[in-house]
Amino acid sequence: MEWKETGFILGVRPYGETSALLESWTRDHGRAMGLVRGGLSRRWKGILQPGNRIVLNWRGRFSEQLGVFIVEADHLYASELMNCPLALLALNVMNELVHIIPERDPHPRLFDSYEHLLNAMSKGYVWLADLVRFELKVLSELGFGIDLTSCVATGDVDNLVYVSPRSGRAVSRSAGLPYSDRLLPLPPFLLDDTLVTNDIPLLLQGFKLAGFFLDRHVYSFRKIAPSCMREILIKRLILL
């Protein structure tokens, strides 16, 4: 078995004394693991950093087996992000999220969002809203998407300003007003993917919304600790 694809590095761990166990994220082969022989050497350390885009040549006897990667550098995002604390935290959050997706399970749309987000971060565009959208996309790819098409109570498609924590569906202003303390605020940028925003209170609403469902469907469900990188990122946003 053999394949070649460009993908991103999620993480690298030592394997024996000189090799590295590389966890990669590709469009067609999903999350893919493999060994990089000599991957711990000084020559490879700078390239095998999380977030870097590399060309991966995977070879193994069976598709389920831990194969061997021959890699080549393509675009080294890591060094571009290293001086931006918020982007580094975001990269960690993104990689943690992709890490929970089953191995060898392709999610091309999510891959495209990942690549788009990394590009925006490295170029210094406004990207925080895209990170919230990415979190919700991960949930949706795992089968736990929230539904923002219409109001769960009235069917209205306008004035959607809340999300019901119970159903994960949108609620309109008029229908939600009497119970607003029990509903999650829905920031407008989640209803329109083209909206660009740097409004911190709205972004925090978005992170709170995504965090609620991440906790329910991922952290609490799998009995794992919530992401500390995400907490640090949100704390940093509050202080901005």
Binding site: R42, R43, K45, G46, I47, N52, L76, S79, N83
Partner: peptide
Amino acid sequence: AQGIPVGGELDYLDDGTLAAAINA
């Protein structure tokens, strides 16, 4: 500081170090 090591020749450096040196 990050970048070119003492005695480092550009054409022998890995891409990651070069990128970091250019950025810094």
